[in-house]
Simulated assay, not measured.
Amino acid sequence: MNMMIYYGLSLLFATSISLQSNVDQLRKNYLAASQDESICKQEIERIKDSSGESPIEMAYHGAYHMLWAQYLNAPLSKLNSFKKGKKLMDSALQKRYGDPEIHFLRLTIQQHAPGILKYNTNIQEDVDQITKHWESLPSAPVKKQVKDFLTSNQLLHDTQLKKLQI
């Protein structure tokens, strides 16, 4: 019986490490994917082969698909890629509303999506959720990335900016 518990715990731990390394890789390449088609494609391919998606993986998967739309030529292909990403992002938010990293991902897309898509109605909501749940962001590098984005896009007022300590 003890051997079975040990096996179960080690399997759970290995799965957790695999999931975390996958998410770390998605985080690491996200900014570069917005400017490099090959990185974006590589991450979409890698995540679609993932065995199961956590809400955070689902959000990154969606964000990468929405980024991918910019690299496509045919208008219908662009729209379909964006819609697929939006659906994944919406599902991630339904599963884990309030997660500041998921709100950050949606915010980055909303901030730069073409106006014709009308995907910019939740900008203030996302900023509010990010600042409200700031302390639950997973690491200092993620916090820095989020803070840099928020400040460079002038999305914070003074009281919000003071709250964002790294």
Score class of each variant (00 low, 15 high):
residue 54 S to F: 10
residue 76 L to D: 09
residue 22 N to D: 00
residue 61 H to S: 14
residue 77 S to W: 10
residue 85 G to D: 01
residue 23 V to R: 00
residue 17 I to D: 04
residue 18 S to R: 13
residue 44 I to M: 06
residue 81 S to I: 02
residue 71 Y to Q: 10
residue 28 K to A: 05
residue 50 S to M: 11
residue 44 I to F: 07
residue 27 R to G: 00
residue 24 D to Y: 13
residue 59 A to W: 06
residue 73 N to L: 10
residue 86 K to F: 07
residue 27 R to T: 03
residue 75 P to L: 04
residue 54 S to E: 07
residue 32 A to L: 09
residue 72 L to K: 14
residue 70 Q to S: 15
residue 51 S to M: 05
residue 70 Q to F: 03
residue 18 S to G: 03
residue 69 A to V: 10
residue 39 I to E: 00
residue 75 P to A: 10
residue 63 A to P: 13
residue 46 R to I: 12
residue 24 D to P: 01
residue 69 A to N: 01
residue 70 Q to W: 06
residue 83 K to Y: 03
residue 18 S to P: 02
residue 82 F to H: 08
residue 70 Q to C: 10
residue 81 S to K: 01
residue 45 E to H: 12
residue 53 E to L: 13
residue 29 N to C: 07
residue 39 I to D: 00
residue 49 D to T: 14
residue 43 E to F: 04
residue 44 I to C: 01
residue 76 L to H: 13
residue 32 A to M: 08
residue 14 A to F: 12
residue 18 S to V: 02
residue 22 N to P: 01
residue 85 G to L: 01
residue 28 K to D: 09
residue 25 Q to Y: 11
residue 27 R to L: 00
residue 41 K to V: 05
residue 14 A to V: 04
residue 64 Y to Q: 02
residue 13 F to L: 10
residue 55 P to E: 00
residue 56 I to Q: 12
residue 20 Q to A: 05
residue 37 E to N: 15
residue 42 Q to P: 08
residue 47 I to V: 11
residue 68 W to Y: 15
residue 14 A to N: 04
residue 16 S to G: 06
residue 72 L to R: 10
residue 86 K to D: 08
residue 86 K to N: 10
residue 70 Q to Y: 04
residue 85 G to W: 04
residue 56 I to F: 11
residue 62 G to S: 03
residue 86 K to A: 11
residue 42 Q to M: 07
residue 42 Q to V: 06
